[in-house]
C-alpha cells in the first residue's frame, strides 16, 4: 500500500515530462508549447487581475445560470410529478425540447438580444434546467410505495410528508441532477463566451488562440480544467454529506 501511494504522481509526472521532452525536441508542432512554458505563464499570470477577472465572469455566468435553471427545473419537475394534469400538459413539450442542446438557440439569441452576459446566463440556465427537471420527475415518481403508504398510515400531514418523505427520497436524484447541470452549465457558458465574444474564460481563450499566444491558451485550458475538477469535487462532497444514509454511500463509510 505504502509503496503504490506515489504511483499516480509518478505517472502524471512522467506524462508531463514526456510532453516537455517532445515539445523541446521539436517532435510536436510549434502550436503545442512545452509544459514548462505553460506552467511559467500560469505562474506569472496567477497574480494578474485579467485572469481572475475572466474566471470570475465565467463563474458568475455559471452560478447565476445554475441557480435559475435548478430552481425552475425542480419546480416544474415537482409540479409535473405531483399534478397529473400539469404532467399531461407539459410532457409532450418536454419530450420534444429536451434533446435539443441550447447552443442551437445561440445564433438567434445573438440576433435578438445581442452578445451580452444576460444571453449567456439565459441559455446556460436553460441547459441546467433539463437535467434538473428530469431528475426531479424521476425522483418523485420512484418514491418507494411502501414509504408512501407508511407515511399515509401514520397520518402525516401534507407538509410533513413533503419534508420527511418526498424530500429525502428525491434527494439522491436532485444531487445527480445538480452534478449534471453544473457540468453542462459550465460547458455551455464557455461556449457562449467563445462564440458570442462575451467576456469570460471562453472569450479569453479565443483571443489568445487567434493571436498565437499558445502558452497562454493552454494555461487558460488548465485553469478551466481545474475549475471543472473543483466544481466536481464540491458537488461530490456535498452529495456524500447529504446522502450519508443512502445505500450507495453507506458502504463507503463502513
Amino acid at each position: 500500500m505504502r509503496l503504490t501511494m506515489p504511483l499516480p504522481v509518478l505517472t502524471t509526472a512522467a506524462l508531463l515530462g514526456t510532453g516537455e521532452a517532445l515539445a523541446r525536441s521539436g517532435a510536436l508542432p510549434a502550436e503545442i508549447p512545452p509544459v514548462s512554458e505553460i506552467a511559467g505563464w500560469l505562474w506569472t499570470n496567477l497574480a494578474t487581475v485579467d485572469l481572475w477577472m475572466a474566471v470570475s465572469q465565467t463563474l458568475t455566468h455559471w452560478a447565476v445560470a445554475l441557480v435559475l435553471g435548478v430552481t425552475v427545473g425542480t419546480l416544474v419537475g415537482a409540479a409535473m410529478a405531483s399534478v397529473p394534469v400539469v404532467n399531461e400538459l407539459l410532457l409532450g413539450t418536454v419530450e420534444f425540447f429536451r434533446p435539443i442542446p441550447v447552443v442551437v438557440y445561440l445564433p438567434i439569441m445573438l440576433l435578438l438580444l445581442g452578445a451580452r452576459p444576460a444571453v449567456v446566463i439565459l441559455l446556460a440556465a436553460v441547459a441546467a434546467l433539463w437535467p434538473m427537471l428530469l431528475q426531479t420527475l424521476y425522483g418523485v415518481r420512484d418514491i418507494d410505495p411502501v414509504t408512501r403508504d407508511t407515511a399515509r398510515v401514520f397520518g402525516l400531514t401534507t407538509p410533513q410528508r413533503l419534508a420527511w418523505v418526498t424530500a429525502p427520497s428525491i434527494l439522491p436524484y436532485v444531487f445527480t441532477g445538480l452534478r449534471i447541470a453544473s457540468t453542462i452549465t459550465l460547458l455551455v457558458a464557455i461556449a457562449m463566451e467563445l462564440i458570442g465574444a462575451v467576456a469570460g474564460l471562453g472569450n479569453t481563450l479565443a483571443t489568445y488562440a487567434s493571436n498565437g499566444l499558445y502558452a497562454a491558451t493552454y494555461g487558460v485550458i488548465v485553469i478551466a480544467g481545474l475549475l471543472g475538477v473543483a466544481l466536481n469535487a464540491v458537488f461530490e462532497r456535498l452529495e456524500r454529506r447529504a446522502l450519508r444514509w443512502h445505500p450507495s454511500h453507506r458502504t463507503q463509510n463502513a
Binding site: L7, P8, V9, L10, T11, T12, L15, E31, T183, L186, L187, V188, I190, A191, L194, L201, G202, L205, A206, Y208, A209, S210, Y214, T217, Y218, V220, I221, A224, G225, L226, L227, G228, V229, L231, N232
Partner: peptide, 23 residues
Amino acid sequence: ALNPVVQFCRSIPGTALVPVSVV
C-alpha cells in the same frame, strides 16, 4: 496510475478545447 490524468481531462469543459483544435 492514470486517475489524475483522466479526472483532469474529463473535467475540462469540452467547448474550451475548440479554439485549440482549430489552431
